[in-house]
Design a protein around this nucleic acid. Structure first.
Lengths: 213, 213, 213, 213
DNA sequence: GATGAATGAGCTTTCATTCAT
DNA sequence: GATGAATGAAAGCTCATTCAT
């Protein structure tokens, strides 16, 4: 390889990087950078300036798109959850039977942890360290998520597949809590795919038997 | 009530307070004050000086008993869990049947949240906001707690009351997660006794059916 | 003087102050303020906030230009010494004869103490109270200063005016030590011009005879 | 060696240590410990509790013998200087000739640095870091020390060996400064015996020629 | 919209000193 | 005299946020 072509390649690579960078909105670039930085350093140890550097924008620019540091975390949560809910709905839609829907739901929840480790760290660990998120955030999206479960349960009850005395409003939280704790353990101990698969099976077995008519 | 008796009562009250204060070690007084202050203001918004004032000791005195602010939280967690584990063991000991043990366990876990609201706030919300706790703490006591559940499950499997293909190491976490999420919701929304009772019943029903042979 | 003209003068003075303030870089303003404050209160008794106030910048701004409090002292030392060395070189350059150069050097060293009393206090007293300066600082500039003396001595030896058995590396320190002690005494007892003049004469007489061939 | 005699030896050693410890007054033990600790850690980084531990006394005991931390340093300085002055007087007394006395003085000053490295570190570096010492201390002992030099010079002038136009009050400081700077350099760079010997010779040669009639 | 220099509030922790025993 | 548990004042530095350009 001669010097000429090396230089040419470098120019091409730079141009490609720039196109890629320009293709995304600054908003998205900041969110993606925040996920990386939060996952790497933790929420409280991440500096706005680091996120800005990672996103190749100025510190002040972040405040054109986000109210403050906690807001990045919360919007990140909402954005991700919105996408996840959409994906889950699509996945669930492939089944008619409520119990089979729940099975898909459980498997997919834990599969997401496996496939998005950075996001999982942020949602499982860092998010809960924001006082604003824990105390002030109106958890609309989170409630949407929980209600996905409640809906399936009610559907199952209508179908006669799930016991009528099961309280969807409570069981939705119990199931979420179970999945969440498994996800947290997976993230903190870096136990990955196998652990999550086995756990998904165990939880399916237990919950479905637990609420089946 | 006349002024005289008021003054007398005040004297008596002061004396009682002093006796109470002297009766406890400074260590215990600091821990109890920390629970109150953390529950009231949140971990990050609590000042060491507030805890010291509440415990009626000097700021510096706290550092004779604790390494730092996070250490207070962690020791508070360990102390509480140690007591809780002892109480749970005693409670469980009253039954021979594994499934009945689990039932007692579940009911008591949520009953503790009801009976110690301040402690519950700290353990459910504030504790998780300490980066040191989430990332550096070796969760020995927590594992002890989880293993209480695993033990009962293994016992039930030996008795033939619980399915042999249930994985105690996973189900213990799933059950804890479910209870924890219900506890968190109770704490954040200030839903108390009734919510916790109903939830305990629902979780018992679901889990016990879910793992029964 | 009437009130009218007083007010006018004040306006003029303020304007002048502002021009003066804007003309210098923040870096220089902070250094100059530090000299004043350190001289007035001593290094350990000076607060960063005082230096900031004197320089009319925010506390945090200081940390955009300096690593920490000790760094201000060290940079102050280096900046001053750099200027002093340049001036001394110019002064020395006016003579050809090594002994006459030394004479100029000695007189000028003590004259600087007389002309910059604040800086002298800082360099003689406060600088030595910084642990970082005494133990961690790599004294490049100071060595440059000492080597000015060594160079002149070597020159004198080449010229045959100074004994060949004089060790420049030791005598440079002995001469500096002598001047430094006189300077310190002048600063601590506020003995000024006359004391310094007489001392310069005495030291010249003694050193030059002491090393002359 | 059998176990029996080992135990016996240990008892004897302990007893000897205790006797040694008791033989010195607490005052002396604290001063000696302070020299060690200050030399090891520096004045500002030494804790009263460390000095107390080293001296095997309680923290509070130190305040029965010393006003405060700076007082330890100052009393340490005075104690040492008193001893040094006595030794120097004895040494000087061995000569009649003023110039020979000065020679002995210079050599002994630098020899003391060589022989008491810990003390030298404290007197050369740490002492100057005490604001109280630099600004409030009435330097009686130090003046005694300087006057030793002045006396010899006056003696030499009376003998006709030293020029009459030499100002003893200035030259004493110049000589001290020269010796002090060499001592400091030796301490900071850990250049020991050889450096100090050569320096002593150079300074003798220069000073004695410099002031000789 | 984008920048980044400047701001300044905010707080844990240390450790010399005291004093009841 | 000796102890050592308790005190509490004291301040450097960080970093989220602003705003003039």
């Amino acid at each position: 390889m001669n010097v000429h072509s090396e230089a040419e390649e470098w120019v091409v690579a730079r141009a490609a990087a720039k196109i890629h960078r320009d293709a995304k909105t600054k908003y998205d670039r900041i969110l993606e950078s925040a996920i990386k930085v939060f996952a790497r350093k933790g929420f409280h140890n991440s500096r706005i300036s680091e996120i800005a550097a990672e996103a190749e924008v100025a510190d002040g620019t972040i405040y054109l798109y986000f109210k403050n540091k906690d807001d990045i975390l919360i919007r990140l949560f909402e954005n991700s959850l919105e996408q996840i809910i959409a994906d889950l709905r699509a996945e669930i839609g492939k089944e008619n039977d409520a119990l089979r829907k729940l099975r898909r739901f459980i498997k997919m929840h834990l599969d997401l942890v496996n496939k998005n480790p950075n996001l999982a760290v942020v949602l499982q660990v860092e998010l809960r360290q924001s006082n604003k998120f824990m105390k002030e955030y109106e958890p609309t999206r989170f409630i949407d998520y929980l209600n996905l479960i409640a809906e399936i349960i009610r559907e199952g009850q209508a179908q006669g597949a799930i016991r009528a005395d099961v309280a969807p409003g409570i069981v939705k939280r119990a199931l979420f809590g179970a999945l969440d704790e498994i996800a947290l353990h997976s993230v903190l101990t870096r136990k990955g795919k196998d652990y999550l698969r086995t756990s998904a099976d165990q939880i399916c077995e237990m919950f479905l038997r637990g609420i089946a008519a």
